[in-house]
Amino acid sequence: MSRISQKFADLKAQGKTALIPYITAGDPKPNATVSLMHLLVAKGADMIELGVPFSDPMADGPVIQRAVERALAHNVSMDDVLEMVREFREKDALTPVILMGYLNPVEHMGYEAFANAASSVGVDAVLTVDMPPEESFGYTETMKEHDLDRIFLISPTTPVGRLRAVNEKGSGFAYYVSLKGVTGSRDVDADDVALQMQRLKGEVDLPMGIGFGIRNGDAAYSMAKQGDAVIVGSSLVSLIEANEHKDLYEIELAIGDKMQEFRNAIDRADAE
C-alpha cells in the first residue's frame, strides 16, 4: 500500500479528514522550502502538495502565478524541487509529498527519468493539471512501475462517463476542483460541492480531496464534512507573499496561524 493510501486508511480508522497544504517550491526563495514543509507538518498537515514552478501556469490565479514567478526568479528547476524533497525526507519519512504542476517539465525530463528520480528521493505522487487521463499513455504505467501515485482532477463539469478513467488510471486520491475557475479565484460554494459529492458517490472509489476556493476555517469546516481531504493553497501562498521580504520566521508565524485555523476547523468537523 502506498504511503498516501496508508495515510488515508489510518485517518479513516480515526474518523479524521486530511489537511493538505500547497506551497510552491522555491517561494519566496529556494532555501525556505524545506523548512516550510516541516512547519506545515508540525502545524497539522497530513500530506504536502509541493508546486513545481512552470513558466506558463494557465490554470492558476494571480497569487500562485506570482509565487511561481518568485521561484523562477531563482531558476528553481525540477532537479532543485527533487533535491528539496530529498532533504525533507532526511527528517520526515512519513508525510506523503505530492508534486503538483504542469506536464512540460516532467515530459522534458522524460517520464522514466523523472519517475526514477522522484521515487528515489521520496516523492509519493504526481499531479499535472494539464494532462487528463486520456493523454496519459506511457505516463500512468511508468509512474506505477516506480510506485508513484497518479492524481487526476475532477471538476464540476466532468461528465460521469469520464470518471471511469480517473478511477482506473488514478490512485492515492482524486482531486475534486470545487469551482469553475483558477486557483484562488473565489470562495467555494458548500451547497454546490454537496450536490457534486452526491453525484460522484459510487462512481469514484478513491478518497476524495477537495480544493480551490478554501480560504478560511469556515470553508475548511464545511469541506471536511464532504470530502476525505481538504486542500488549501492560495491562502497560504498569499501569506508568503505578504511577508516576502521579512525573515523566514515571520512567514512561518503567519503560515502557522493559518494552518492552525484550518486544522482546528477540520478537527471540529471531524469531532461532530
Binding site: 494557465m58 490554470a59 506536464l103 493539471v129 487528463p132 493523454e135 471538476s155 466532468t158 469553475k180
Partner: peptide, 22 residues
C-alpha cells in the same frame, strides 16, 4: 479522432475544460 498528428497535438487541458472541448 483524439486530435493527434503522429506524436503531436492531443488534448492537454485542465479538467474543467474537457467537457467544453468535447
Amino acid at each position: 479522432e483524439h486530435g493527434h498528428f503522429g506524436p503531436y497535438g492531443g488534448i492537454f487541458a485542465p479538467e474543467t475544460l474537457m467537457a467544453a472541448l468535447e
